[in-house]
Design a binder for these strands. Structure first.
Length: 400
DNA sequence: CCTCCACCGGAAAGCCGGGTCA
DNA sequence: TGACCCGGCTTTCCGGTGGAGG
């Protein structure tokens, strides 16, 4: 086996790939021009433009389903704005924050700490009273003496988890200081605004932009634009883009998913040493994405969750028989005893089951069995191809 | 039409680990 | 070192409920 690895790497390097530049398919990539969002871009630009004259732009609220180009368009627009501000010497600070990022900006404290950090005032990630962090942020803000635009992406996550306190304070800050702070909120939950305090809502959505889903034709042109950069010439077989777009349009016009599908299809083709991407590769890619997603979610779950899921899987070897919370809990308890694990309350297990439901691993809905009580009816939503692997993961995790 | 089951699910509070600060 | 703070996970408490069976 001498030189085995060297040979392998050598072959790997020289191996033909369908890709030219994979980055063009990644979700962080910002293209030269954004298709089918001309009006939105303009509308956003209109709202933000006053910042160049040192006036405070209106707060802006953006919503639309996932993969409709919200984040992309906002980033694109603010980036251009920052460039102009730079050359025109108009003091302007733009802060982008994703509220969904775990341990980063998903609580009031962490959001404020993050904001203060962006303004050059480092704050310890924990330990201080929240009020202190507000103070730090305010001081940093006043020292800046320039217009500030704060972009809060996935803002619904923040509010769902920790309430609208932070937003309330944030919208009021701009009234209470010299510096001018504008907020751009991005949400993919349209109902989100309803749970806000009315004062916060009206303040936050001085301007509103709604991003509709793309249709199949629009997704096609987006895919073509990116594929041009990402793949070698002739690497795409006829109909591949169309099929990709059709899949994405089928589930609510999610362009991000379409791009991911195309990228993974390319990777599958590479692995098979195929010089072309065919429509079969798309199918394989779709299955792979689905499978990987589920496996990844399960694998990163803590042990108690594994015990619950394992109980459910053991109770249900065949499809179309449904389970109820009570029986799952019974098995879970005995499993805990066998493995020397502390037993959680049924109330807690109930929540864990709901979480699996939200993650799309299970399907749980409350039903009434009349005389025999009210409970959840639970079924499994794991693709067959992933089942064996999942069971493996669960068993490994439980017996440690 | 009423009862009553077997849970649901909200609210609040406790515990614990990670941290700051004086 | 001790007083305090945050956030994640969990327990405790408890009012609520759709509908089969009487």
């Amino acid at each position: 086996m001498e030189g085995g690895l060297e040979t392998f790497f050598g072959v790997f390097l020289r191996k033909n790939s369908v890709f030219l530049d994979k980055r063009a398919l990644q979700s962080t990539y910002i293209p030269e021009n954004i298709l089918h969002r001309e009006e939105h871009t303009q509308q956003i630009a209109n709202t933000l433009a006053p910042a160049l004259k040192g006036e405070k732009p209106s707060n802006l609220f953006v919503y639309g389903k996932t993969g409709t180009g919200k984040t992309l368009t906002i980033k694109y627009t603010t980036q251009k704005l920052a460039e102009v501000a730079e050359t025109e010497n108009a003091p302007l600070k733009i802060i982008y924050i994703n509220c969904k990022l775990k341990r980063s900006a998903d609580t009031e404290y962490r959001l404020m700490a993050q904001l203060a950090g962006e303004l050059g005032k480092m704050v310890p990630p924990t330990g201080l009273p929240t009020g202190e962090v507000y103070g730090a942020f305010l001081r940093a803000l006043n020292r800046q003496k320039r217009n500030c635009i704060i972009i809060l992406d996935e803002i619904d996550q923040l509010v769902n988890k920790t309430g609208d306190n932070a937003l309330y304070n944030l919208t009021r800050i701009s009234e209470a200081t010299e510096s001018q702070v504008s907020i751009i909120g991005i949400s993919n939950d349209i109902m989100f605004a309803d749970i806000l305090d009315p004062r916060v809502r009206s303040s936050l959505s001085e301007e509103e932009v709604v991003f509709p889903p793309y249709n199949a034709l629009q997704i096609q042109s987006i895919l073509k634009q990116r594929a041009e950069l990402a793949f070698k010439k002739e690497a795409l077989e006829l109909g591949v883009i169309e099929k990709c777009a059709a899949y994405a349009a089928r589930d609510h016009g999610d362009a991000r998913r379409a791009l991911e599908l195309l990228r993974v299809a390319g990777e599958v083709a590479d692995r098979e040493n195929s010089s072309k991407i065919t429509t079969e590769h798309i199918d394989k890619a779709e299955a792979k994405i689905d499978r990987d997603r589920v496996i990844d979610i399960v694998a990163t779950q803590p042990k108690q969750y594994h015990l619950v899921l394992y109980s459910i899987l053991s109770l249900k070897p065949n499809k179309n028989s449904n389970l109820f919370t009570g029986e799952i809990y019974e098995l879970y308890k005995s499993l805990c005893n066998k493995t020397n694990t502390s037993i959680l309350t049924q109330r807690r297990i109930s929540d864990i089951i709901s979480e699996f439901d939200m993650l799309g691993i299970l399907n749980a809905r409350v039903i009434s069995k009349g005389r025999y009580g009210r409970t959840r009816e639970i079924s499994i939503e794991i693709p067959d191809t992933a089942l064996a692997k999942i069971k493996q993961i669960l068993e490994d995790s439980i017996h440690t």
